[in-house]
Nucleic acid binder design. Structure first.
Lengths: 332, 332
DNA sequence: CTGTTAGCGCCTTCAG
DNA sequence: CTGAAGGCGCTAACAG
């Protein structure tokens, strides 16, 4: 910086002022240009470390997550947050934490120790969590998780409307009796989607008694098993609504094994819009997308905008329908 | 730190020395203990920023990757690198970059600007890449990519042996004629696995003419289409070797649609051991694992150990077989 | 074995 | 509108 100052014939202070445009100082246009030119020709880059030491903020946002490894969605979330951060000149630092509160706490500590400006706490499956108390010392937003009391603002997928949307994809084209192969009720997402499903049933003037609701565990083979069960009981409906795209894959498998065609014999709707799965199944799976990218982006943007305190306890982002080729009107 | 020094009745220097055990200084046991106690009771944490400013190393390793969003494997790689880094007290900073060299360059610049100590350049699909020249100014290792001239050391999956392993899972139990549904030859992995396949054929004293090799594009529907092709030509073999687990999923679908059972009628082997897919297909898919976690771990470990210069240009990590339930001996 | 001293590169009050 | 001076918290010669 001294070099730049010398080259521009000004003091280091002046250089600092022009580099921090927002410093409240007014620098003559001519001087500013001289400095900028010097910066340019010398290829000068401000030293972040020194700057951070002085200002004690680091232009980094921490991203803590459990189980990044297994979820295909984690990537989308990170990408969203990453892009939002970069756009503001910040960098995203990703840290993996276990599911238990102790390692979570330790990971956040690690981040705090590195002086991150804010943190995104991303949870894999939507659920209520207990956050370590050290989140208090830095602006934090929760992603896909929530806490009681709304102490920390959270972004969540709007699963209730999502469930409604998924069901509507079937009811809207005339199905009147479907099987909903969902996940365990222990999961918040399952319950929310069920609520949405019930609303769709009601909105279409149908009876819940005509619908079959079966609980699985969101794995491929669970979709497979449940469909076989349906077949064994001679209760194969004209349409199957799946808890997620993986279960839908199992449904496809069981259906084709039984000689039933999608969508001619049975319509199928998934949930998640899992990359490289939903779009490339045969036929391509109609589904509902969880807005992971948008959630990541939203979280980073709020943090960077400051004043996370002002946020509502929970913000729900819409799960849009992704119609493809696995739905058709029922045969009559 | 001054507080600690005061509490321990020593100078700041002494505190610094005991905190940097490796500083070459010898501190009396008693003094060290006094300092450590003071640190403990005061809850003192060294300021990384100041330390980094002084030492100009930051205990962070940068992880640059293209397209983290879509690959389910990216997570495993990041996790491996992350854990190795944490074990040494370093943090992993993940940055997303596009596929073109300009944004790649910019991302690395960003990292350099943040004074990372080293960088891992992770490429999605194994391929030859052109690296920006700024990789020269920091220890770098390539993951899943390689450069001509071996200027940068690379870790790669041993796809040749992997292809051999996959084929052996079929030939070893007695299959003599299989269909290999692979990817486009433009891909390095495809070519390597093909080589492995040929070696397996030769090693088992079989003829390549008895094998069918079909090229797809690694998508689910490509496995589906190719299998239908096989069936249409009346050339369904006793076993199908798939380019990846997703193609195997398509194969499952086409097979069950045709009334053929896995593995009773046709044995199927995948590749990748994709989480939440291979293990939960029905029946569970026998496959070969790409050691993403290990590759990430290896890269971080080498970087942290220093002297990346000494590494061979390419290090291949083994792809182990993961036998499950989709293979059985051929019917006679 | 321990303390003194001089910065690392930047920002920021306070005077001009 | 610009400059001088002090310090963020730590490390590393260099003395003792």
């Amino acid at each position: 910086m001294a070099d730049v100052a010398r080259a521009a014939g000004v003091s280091g202070t002046t250089v600092s002022f022009v580099l921090n445009e927002n410093s409240g100082q007014v620098i003559s246009l001519e001087t500013r240009q001289r400095v900028l030119d010097a910066v340019e020709t010398l290829g000068y880059r401000r030293n972040y470390l020194a700057r951070s030491l002085r200002t004690s903020h680091t232009a980094t946002v921490g991203f803590v997550t459990d189980e990044i490894a297994i979820e295909p969605y984690a990537g989308a979330t990170i990408l969203g947050a990453h892009e939002a951060a970069l756009a503001q000149g910040s960098l995203l630092v990703v840290v993996n934490a276990g599911r238990d509160i102790r390692t979570l706490r330790r990971s956040i500590d690690e981040l705090l120790h590195r002086h991150v400006d804010s943190v995104i706490l991303a949870i894999l499956g939507t659920r209520r969590i207990t956050v370590p108390d050290n989140t208090k010392s830095v602006p934090t937003v929760l992603l896909n998780g929530y806490v009681m009391g709304g102490l920390l603002p959270a972004v969540l997928p709007d699963e209730t409307t999502g469930g409604r949307t998924a069901a509507d994809m079937l009811f809207d084209v005339g199905h009147r009796s479907v099987a909903f192969l969902t996940g365990p009720t222990a999961s918040w997402a399952t319950r929310a989607r069920l609520t949405g499903f019930r609303r769709a049933v009601a909105a279409h003037g149908l009876s819940l008694d005509d619908q079959t609701i079966l609980h699985g565990d969101y794995r491929i083979d669970s979709g497979y098993d449940l469909t076989q069960l349906l077949i064994a009981h001679g209760r194969l409906p004209s349409a199957i609504l799946c808890g997620n795209d993986r279960m839908a894959t199992g449904v496809y498998l069981a259906l084709s094994e039984a000689g039933a065609r999608v969508p001619d014999d049975v319509s199928v709707v998934g949930y998640d819009d899992q990359p490289q799965l939903a779009d490339s199944l045969h036929p391509a799976l109609s589904t509902v997308r969880i807005p992971y990218y948008q959630m990541g982006r939203w979280a980073a943007e709020q943090l960077l905008a400051g004043d996370v305190q002002m946020l509502p306890p929970r913000t729900y982002l819409r799960c849009p329908p992704v119609p493809r080729s696995s739905v058709s009107p029922p045969r009559r």
